[in-house]
């Protein structure tokens, strides 16, 4: 009886997988992703990238959750966050994850960049992936900065205030930058709306496809490239050369003497 149910379940599973495979090719795609050969060395170093992805996914999830309560107006922004922190179930956790994973994200992104730099993983043919990575790190920095301002509390507001003031020192276009970021010539409701639009819609919409391109280019060229992935082969090459060299000396030593 159990054997028959098992056979039937397997059959249904197989049929469902086949059905999806014919229509979308998802099974072979998954197989392709899962069984891709990756370097054995540096397994733990290479977790920095996936940790970044994980933290960004956390940002997207908790960000969407926070929007269930957050109100982007000057009068209610602070109050709605206060509500999240004190009244909403697990509000402390959801906002805590959004805040702390953003901080951890900055650290992990920095380490990821350093790892890429010191292993020379940006060299041909991976230059474009480095460029995309730099764009991503800039987007993450601006996201962190704008997220700070959305709180509309003293800390976040003054940080944004200083940011606008720095923007107003941009050569030639400073005053335009300032009025664009302020949404007028004074700080007010338009300023918060702009920060909200940039943090919640504009930058995530840019970030998501760029992460896709980053991953696509990674899969296309693989993680290999660092000499560190050829340690054994290099060692063997060195050994063989040494033997040849000794052989050469031995020959050379023998001939002039005799």
């Amino acid at each position: 009886m159990i054997a028959r149910i098992r056979a039937w379940a397997l059959g249904v599973g197989q049929a469902a997988a086949d059905w999806m495979e014919v229509r979308t090719g998802v099974v072979s795609m998954l197989e392709h992703f899962l069984y891709e050969p990756v370097p054995k060395r540096g397994m733990w170093l290479y977790t920095l990238g996936s940790a970044t992805l994980f933290l960004i996914v956390l940002q997207f999830l908790t960000g969407i959750l926070l929007l269930f309560y957050y109100v982007p107006t000057t009068d209610e922004a602070w109050n709605s966050i206060y509500y999240i922190m004190t009244e909403a179930y697990f509000g402390l956790l959801i906002r805590g994850i959004h805040f702390w994973s953003a901080n951890v994200l900055i650290v992990v992104v920095g380490l990821h960049m350093l790892r890429t730099f010191f292993s020379g993983a940006y060299k041909a043919p991976r230059e474009l992936n480095w460029v995309v990575g730099v764009v991503l790190i800039l987007l993450v920095t601006v996201l962190a900065f704008t997220g700070y301002a959305l709180r509309w509390d003293a800390e976040g507001f003054w940080a944004w205030e200083v940011g606008i003031k720095i923007g107003s020192y941009t050569p030639f276009v400073g005053s335009y930058v300032a009025t664009f970021l302020l949404g007028g010539d004074t700080v007010g409701p338009a300023t918060l709306s702009r920060v909200f639009a940039i943090h919640v819609w504009l930058l995530p919409a840019l970030l998501a496809p760029l992460i896709g391109i980053h991953l696509y280019l990674l899969r296309k060229h693989g993680e290999f490239g660092s000499e560190f992935e050829y340690t054994k082969r290099l060692a063997e090459l060195r050994e063989r050369k040494q033997i040849e060299e000794y052989a050469l000396y031995e020959e050379g030593d023998e001939s002039p003497r005799e």
């Binding site: 005053s175 335009y176 009025t179 949404g183 007028g184 010539d185 004074t186 007010g188």
Partner: peptide
Amino acid sequence: FMLSPTIKTNFLGQSDV
């Protein structure tokens, strides 16, 4: 649409106050 505050402030000299 995005730049209307900039246009109003920098080119038309309007103020929010």
